[in-house]
Design a binder for these strands. Structure first.
Length: 144
DNA sequence: AGTGAGCGT
């Protein structure tokens, strides 16, 4: 038997084969905490990247399926090494969809990569003192 | 660390 690499990703799709109780309805709020399919977005989250994969390599790989406006491989801020995942932004939603269908589960630099719609980075909030990094060089004033 | 799931400088 050949070893097959099954892309299990993060979550498992639970299928409802048959309803044991036809009188009852499936729980509406049971799995409503998370959408099975991410909302269409021009931002793509790409994981499973090789440590050797860089931003231009990622952009070149995804540019074959659409116009990549912005691409970035997330690297450590201190060392500068790749964390193994990155983000790709297309110009349109359809190009983003083609990019996912074209690159998800494919190989890049010897590693299987996973492409999906990325979540919103951060909600546009008011100027707050919240800082994810050490220094808090806040300039709350002069902000429009 | 060469770390291997994940959502960003």
């Amino acid at each position: 038997m050949a070893t097959r690499a099954v892309a299990a990703q993060r979550g498992l799709r639970r299928l409802f084969s048959t309803s044991p109780f036809p009188s009852f309805n499936p729980p509406p709020s049971a799995a409503a905490a998370q959408q099975p399919k991410a909302e269409p977005s021009t931002n793509l989250f790409v994981s499973g990247l090789s440590k050797r994969t860089t931003t231009e390599g990622l952009k070149e790989a995804f540019s074959k399926f659409g116009e990549v406006v912005q691409a970035r491989v997330v690297t450590d801020r201190v060392s500068g090494y790749s964390k193994g995942f990155g983000f790709v932004r297309y110009g349109t939603l359809e190009d983003a969809a083609k990019g996912i269908e074209g690159m998800d589960g494919k190989f890049l630099d010897g590693w299987v990569i996973f492409a999906e719609y990325a979540r919103p980075r951060a909600p546009p909030g008011p100027p707050s003192e919240s800082s994810q990094y050490g220094h808090n060089m806040s300039s709350p004033y002069g902000r429009q």
